[in-house]
């Protein structure tokens, strides 16, 4: 029942968004914003094309590497700062101020170091994703109820048993929240990097389409990315809810 309600709500939102799109199209005219039907028709032609596949692949590869870096480094920092209290207390405000910084300003530095390369875009994507993963992992470890650790000691669990059967399951739900936000922000970072300076990728495709005033292509690529991000987020949210219910 709840599931059908949620599905209905999602459909309602999609319909409202499409209507808003159509209304905006009527107001600003076809050159500025194509209406939904021709755009979706264009989308159906664009997605199977080789040009789209190449650029989508470029973005995916870049995103994949950036995500591995975000998760790896973020989890490492988070675990360290969660376990070692002093580092956590010292580092948390620093991480929070870095988190709220508009990191896009630092992109030229990344470009100067790495040049216009894949590694530059990967680094920039990872810069966005590392911080939420680290901050939420740290708070997950800090928020473990002390009674869990006490019962582990009472049961004479070994170090590894404690980590695998107590610490890992107890921290997992909150860590997954961090991984979801990290996913989102890494994608944002990769796309921003492609929009600012790149010769391939979906971000580049959007900017290029804008400069050539191919509004249909621009909106079509934006719709693809929107759908990708929304579906991935829904999937991760679903995992998150399942984990929270289990605990």
């Amino acid at each position: 029942m709840i599931a059908t309600n949620r599905a209905a709500d999602t459909v309602i939102i999609l319909i409202v968004l499409l209507l808003a799109w159509q209304a905006l199209h009527q107001i600003v005219g076809a050159t500025a914003l194509p209406s939904p039907v021709p755009t979706l028709a264009y989308l159906a032609k664009l997605v199977p094309s080789e040009r789209f596949a190449e650029n989508a692949w470029a973005t995916l590869v870049c995103f994949f590497y950036a995500l591995i870096l975000s998760y790896g480094i973020g989890l490492a920092i988070g675990v360290w700062m969660g376990v070692h209290r002093l580092s956590g207390a010292v580092g948390e405000p620093i991480l929070i101020s870095l988190y709220t910084l508009p990191k896009v300003t630092l992109y030229p530095v990344v470009l100067l170091i790495f040049g216009l390369s894949l590694s530059g875009r990967v680094t920039f994507g990872a810069m966005h994703g590392v911080l939420p993963v680290a901050l939420l992992t740290m708070s997950a470890i800090r928020n473990i109820p002390p009674v869990y650790l006490k019962s582990a000691r009472t049961l004479h669990l070994s170090r590894w048993q404690t980590i695998l059967t107590v610490l890992f399951p107890a921290t997992l739900p909150e860590v997954v929240v961090g991984l979801r936000i990290g996913f989102t922000l890494t994608l944002l970072g990769v796309l921003l990097a492609e929009m600012f300076a790149a010769k391939q990728g979906l971000g580049f495709l959007i900017i290029n389409a804008m400069q050539l005033l191919q509004t249909e292509e621009m909106v079509a690529v934006a719709v693809v990315l929107f759908a990708f991000a929304a579906v991935a987020n829904a999937l991760l949210l679903w995992i998150e809810h399942r984990l929270h219910r289990r605990v």
């Binding site: 309600n5 949620r6 709500d9 999602t10 309602i12 939102i13 905006l24 600003v28 500025a32 914003l33 979801r180 989102t184 994608l187 944002l188 796309l191 921003l192 929009m195 971000g203 959007i206 900017i207 389409a209 804008m210 005033l213 509004t215 621009m218 909106v219 690529v221 934006a222 990315l225 929107f226 991000a229 929304a230 991935a232 987020n233 829904a234 949210l237």
Partner: peptide, 26 residues
């Protein structure tokens, strides 16, 4: 509000900067 819940849950997951070029054209 209930209908908007999925929208709020997804909003910050979508890199909304992809719509900036659309805004510029408009």
């Amino acid at each position: 509000r209930q209908s908007l819940d999925p929208f709020f849950a997804t909003y910050y997951a979508v890199p909304i900067f992809i719509f900036y070029p659309v805004m510029i054209v408009i």
